[in-house]
Amino acid sequence: MVPLICVVDDDDASREAISGLVRALGHRVAEFSSADAFLAFAEIGRVEVLIADVRMPGMTGIELCELMAASGSAIRTVLVTAHPSEADRQGAARVGAAFLVKPVSPAALAACLGAP
């Protein structure tokens, strides 16, 4: 079965652009506009990779990773941001996530996701 990749980003255009890239790389995609919406996803146990925006209203991408790890449901994660900071890079490293800057490079994203 083709891996399921979830994209969590509060910015519609960014979420759609990243989802389009993921589809073009041969993966199935589910999109969410918030961390809370993702956490309510019935198929969360089937998610292969999570791509989450670092800065979102409510729960941030880093906080989402921390919550997933604390609940024993850690998912391989790629954190993305349009406003990179050293603190965000360190946060991504702390939670074991890859870190990409928007606009996301197709080659960089492909490297993070691996082959379908």
Score class of each variant (00 low, 15 high):
Val54Pro: 15
Val54Lys: 11
Val54Gln: 11
Arg55Phe: 10
Arg55His: 15
Arg55Gly: 07
Arg55Ile: 10
Met56Gln: 02
Met56Pro: 01
Pro57Lys: 11
Gly58Lys: 11
Gly58Trp: 10
Gly58Gln: 12
Met59Arg: 15
Met59Pro: 03
Met59Thr: 15
Met59Trp: 08
Met59Glu: 07
Thr60Leu: 02
Thr60Asp: 14
Gly61Leu: 10
Gly61Trp: 05
Gly61Ile: 14
Ile62Arg: 06
Ile62Tyr: 03
Glu63Gly: 13
Glu63Asp: 09
Leu64Ala: 05
Leu64Tyr: 11
Cys65His: 05
Glu66Lys: 13
Leu67Trp: 04
Leu67Val: 10
Leu67Phe: 10
Leu67Gln: 14
Leu67Ile: 12
Met68Phe: 05
Met68Asn: 01
Ala69Arg: 14
Ala70Pro: 02
Ala70Leu: 04
Ser71Ala: 15
Ser71His: 09
Ser71Trp: 06
Ser71Lys: 13
Ser71Asn: 11
Gly72Asp: 04
Gly72Ile: 02
Gly72Val: 09
Gly72Trp: 01
Ser73Ile: 00
Ser73Tyr: 01
Ser73Asn: 07
Ser73Gly: 06
Ala74Gln: 13
Ile75Ala: 06
Arg76Tyr: 09
Arg76Met: 06
Arg76Phe: 04
Thr77Gln: 02
Thr77Ala: 13
Thr77Asp: 01
Thr77His: 02
Thr77Glu: 01
Thr77Ile: 03
Val78Phe: 13
Leu79Gly: 09
Val80Lys: 03
Thr81Pro: 00
Thr81Gln: 03
Ala82Met: 05
Ala82Phe: 08
Ala82Glu: 02
Ala82Ile: 08
His83Met: 11
His83Asn: 05
His83Ile: 11
His83Ala: 07
His83Gln: 04
His83Glu: 07
His83Cys: 08
Pro84Gln: 03
Pro84Glu: 02
Pro84Val: 12
Ser85His: 00
Ser85Met: 07
Ser85Glu: 10
Ser85Phe: 00
Glu86Val: 11
Ala87Met: 07
Ala87His: 05
Asp88Val: 00
Asp88Thr: 00
Asp88Ser: 07
Asp88Leu: 01
Arg89Leu: 12
Gln90Val: 12
Gln90Phe: 11
Gln90His: 12
Gly91Met: 09
Gly91Ile: 06
Ala92Val: 02
Ala92Pro: 04
Ala92His: 14
Arg94Gly: 04
Arg94Trp: 05
Val95Ala: 01
Val95Thr: 12
Val95Met: 07
Val95Ile: 12
Val95Phe: 08
Gly96Leu: 12
Ala97Gln: 03
Ala97His: 13
Ala97Phe: 09
Phe99Thr: 03
Phe99Glu: 06
Phe99Tyr: 15
Leu100Phe: 14
Val101Asn: 12
Val101Trp: 09
